[in-house]
Design a protein around this nucleic acid. Sequence first.
DNA 1: ACCATCCTGAACTGCTTGGTTCAAGATACG
DNA 2: CGTATCTTGAACCAAGCAGTTCAGGATGGT
Lengths: 192, 192
Amino acid sequence: MAGKKQFDVDTALEAAMTRFWRAGYADTSLDDLSAATGLNRSSIYSSLGDKESLYLRCLDRYATRYGEKYDQALSRASEEPSRAIREFFDVTLARIADPGVPDGCLIAQTAMAVPVLSPAIAARAIEALGFQRTRLRTALTAAQVADADGLAVHFAAVNQSLAVMSRAGASRKQLRAIVDVSLRALSRALDA
Amino acid sequence: MAGKKQFDVDTALEAAMTRFWRAGYADTSLDDLSAATGLNRSSIYSSLGDKESLYLRCLDRYATRYGEKYDQALSRASEEPSRAIREFFDVTLARIADPGVPDGCLIAQTAMAVPVLSPAIAARAIEALGFQRTRLRTALTAAQVADADGLAVHFAAVNQSLAVMSRAGASRKQLRAIVDVSLRALSRALDA
DNA sequence: ACCATCCTGAACTGCTTGGTTCAAGATACG
DNA sequence: CGTATCTTGAACCAAGCAGTTCAGGATGGT
């Protein structure tokens, strides 16, 4: 197959992202990516770039996709803050419950490997986490919650903790319990 | 240098553990371990075993060392639960603040890599996390707190989240804020 | 002084890694 | 039909990997 038609770059990118997400950067070889995407090594290299730039593209893809979902969940924070934060966590819980997608979180995985990753990749992961915190802080500020800063970083952290715990085989019930304690803390802050 | 004296196995194990802790299993080669311990490749192999069994020994070493500290922090939970949990988190915060030791957490790092690690290593990490939850649940039950189970898994998760956030360069202030929200949730649970 | 003991450096194996090149083949369009 | 365009598989490279072996040198105990 050749001539003018090209393979679907988007599909290949999705497969590569999923592989990186499950196994991490170090444990994903070009052969793994080749097998996952169905593309030849040379095709990956010529149309998706080398391993590092491909990883960066996957990071962006991941951050954009779930960033939009988080934004949507938080969009009505000023009217119903409790519900907004609950829906924020539901985005993560639904992702973990989805059998078509790996456990964990690509951003969290990248953050854990910061000391051994290239500065460019490390910076992108840290940036994404910072963006998540900002997202939450903006929503909580709009809802006029006391200590919006502290709660924002707490929720961002608890969200990441779900990635770790899901990798360790935590049940959905346990993941829900983790979130519930944080949601109760928000309720108290709203009462005051 | 040879004859009858041996190098200090304990010192070597400590160096290996630190290296694994910082860089993870995949990104630590035998040459890295050799450089870190100051031992020859063949010395590592003959007296510490292969890479996998050495990693297991490091995991145990880590779990035992900090497990004791966590136990100590929680020992007076029935009398002063709030203080006990605060001191529990202080163990982690002090470890992260210690410049002589890497950020993050060896257990969390291992948990994140579960899908690509050997079953033996994966099982040990999951076991360690389960033990942490049990430790907390026992303490909270002794303190007669409502929803000890939910709080235990929440605290265990938040504790792991500190590893992720510290790797992403979070400040001590931010890490403290993450913990504070959880501690407030405990206070409310104790009031009720 | 001697000998048993242990460590060390170096080498070697077989394999995988990321990266790159290129000729051959398949297609679509004029 | 012919030609320009694109993909593909295979091969190649230098490097790094884990694991293992072994001869030789340094040491401690006697």
